[in-house]
Design a binder for these strands. Structure first.
Lengths: 353, 353
DNA sequence: CCATAAAATGCAAACGATTGCATGATTGCG
DNA sequence: CGCAATCATGCAATCGTTTGCATTTTATGG
């Protein structure tokens, strides 16, 4: 970047030694091969000349790019930036740079994306956009590319992952709801092709039964977004089932659900309690503030980077896939209230159309 | 990344030509030097072998990395992801990868960051974290590094920039407020070392005078965040000046201000109107929904990438610095109401402490 | 049909680092 | 004091591309 970068050769010339000596002196790994005095002079000269190793040359020779790819559905979705931040922070001082790419959840685009990353020869991959069955990921892993999925996981247990404790989160939420008197609980579930969607829904079914409450009607959202949340809430309300709370598979669905509720002139939490999952930024500021499950977004990213480093540094065979699960926390806010104050969902048709 | 990548040599061998011929045939720029028939055979072989050029070797030889750095204060701040997305989208199909780094607004960290980018030899820089006077940026630009600032600009006009029309936004907001009867307007201004803080505040002063209204008390926030917004709002209320609306230099300040307002038992917009700037995601869902100025975040990023490409491709002297200003839009929501309904700020001390 | 210009391809030298091996210097020990 | 072992450094090949120049092939025109 600077006008004229100095190279190993320049430093070697300045000190009067061979370039290989400089290389060794500057590499902590081979530093011990060099006499202290010479090494010191080299260190000084390298500082004086502001020497920076040429990444391209290093990569070409060693076949390591010191770059990792981070694949997310959409960086614009505020669940991901903290995760990315965690990954970057964990990797930066290890000398790794981070290439973030967006798939928009589209399969074809994912192919193009992975192509671009592959062409750049990233040393490893942190993937947040994975589905439960993911051929592309499986193939790459099979080829020996270090991979760790984050936030979501694939069903294949041989792929390392760092996720949040979805099941515990749902259980805690259900316990919270029952503790304030709710017994009829509906759900807006997420995409069952995603581990988060699947796990959360399974937990809902399982723990609802265990707690002896009536799992109410369930709608499955196609995507984890506000529009689908609104649509599902509309369908639930139109469906005529009886319930006093709606458990949503994530915050965005919950936000959409709240919108649909309001559009029909109903109030949360007076008429219906609504819960989310993730504790996205700002959900504490919306109306009503959302009761949700807080996941450790930054930590998840940070740990994923750690697991990835472990795999990238494993010289021989890949270490056994680690599956890290981080604890979650229940955050009670204004969108849930005692069931006593709630009326069952009305059976009336929606007002408009 | 794949087990064993094929190289130019492999393709050359397969076709029975020299590697330089393959190189030329595959490069659109030199493609015309090669006989159509051979070129075609090379194209096929390269496809069959799934040949991908080695980025490291390319970079080493040409001294271009096909990588640009994007420097933001914090990717976690939801104003930036759409900008980054715009940059990435504009650059991806031109074959450029994007390295995003966070400075956290800290100067020392910025140095480290730029170091890391410099070491990686990025071809250009999109900088969103710039201050009005920025030595580091000026120096890099002086060294001939293609740079464009985004969202913010530096005072030095020789640095290219893509920003939103801050002045127009403030004018529109003031016009909106006066149109609904406000005449005494206070302000929470941003950091005057940032172009956005400075420009918006200048516009406030200028247009308030032009509209013949009473620019009320002003507080300067140190950072564009909720905490400082709350603090400033507190000071305004304690200050005892009279005003019916508070114009905040951005949404986060406004959100903090709303919090402080509520903490004192006052209501928005009944007691006081509050306005923001940027139209961040979710500000339409908070309570009350924020009246603000919508900036074209994605477009700003996209255009910045375009300007950068122009500079990176300029072989000889850098083209004259372009300064692009994108239009903004007034979004009226629930946080502003006619002044008639507002009572002047009370002169009482805050309730707690 | 040959000389010559033009077009197509091959050759080889970079780019800047790493690293196995060779060599020269030093040390230790008998 | 000499020989071997050890240590420090130098040598040179290598990674995969690009590209100026040399060389070969083809086309052109007299």
């Amino acid at each position: 970047m600077a006008r004229k970068r100095s190279t190993l050769k320049d430093v070697a010339q300045a000190v009067g030694v061979h370039v290989s000596t400089v290389s060794r002196a500057l590499n902590p790994h081979t530093r011990h091969l060099i006499t202290d005095e010479i090494a010191e002079r080299i260190a000084q000269a390298s500082r004086a000349l502001d020497y920076r190793p040429n990444t391209a040359a290093y990569s070409l020779r060693t076949n390591r790019t010191k770059t990792v790819g981070v694949v997310v559905p959409d960086i614009t979705n505020s669940i991901f930036p903290p995760i990315i931040r965690g990954v970057e922070d964990a990797l930066l001082d290890k000398g790794y740079a981070t290439l973030v790419v967006n798939t928009d959840g589209r399969r074809e685009r994912e192919a193009v994306i992975l192509d671009a990353l592959s062409a750049r020869g990233v040393d490893g991959l942190v993937v947040a956009s994975v589905q439960r069955e993911d051929a592309a990921i499986g193939e790459l892993a099979g080829q020996g590319v270090p991979i760790v999925t984050v936030n979501r996981s694939v069903d294949d247990p041989s792929i390392a992952s760092v996720v949040s404790d979805d099941a515990a989160g749902i259980r805690m939420m259900l316990e919270h709801l029952t503790s304030i008197g709710h017994t009829r609980i509906a759900a807006i579930a997420g995409d069952q092709n995603l581990s988060t969607g699947k796990k959360r829904h399974q937990a809902f079914v399982l723990h609802a039964a265990a707690l002896g409450l009536l799992a109410g009607p369930v709608r499955f959202a196609g995507a984890f977004n506000e529009d689908d949340g609104a649509r599902c809430m509309g369908e639930l309300l139109d469906g005529g089932g009886r319930f006093t709370a709606v458990l949503c598979a994530n915050d965005r669905l919950a936000i959409g659900a709240l919108g649909a509720l309001r559009a029909r002139g109903m109030r949360c939490p007076q008429d219906l309690s609504v819960t989310g999952f993730n504790d996205m930024p700002m959900v504490d500021r919306i109306d009503p503030p959302l009761t949700t499950i807080r996941i450790q977004q930054y930590q998840v990213g940070f740990m994923a980077a750690g697991v990835l480093l472990e795999r990238m540094n494993a010289r021989g065979e890949a270490p056994p896939a680690r599956s890290v699960v981080l604890p979650v926390e229940l955050i009670v806010r204004g969108s849930t209230a005692p069931a006593a104050a709630s009326k069952p969902a009305p059976r009336v048709r929606s007002l408009t159309r």
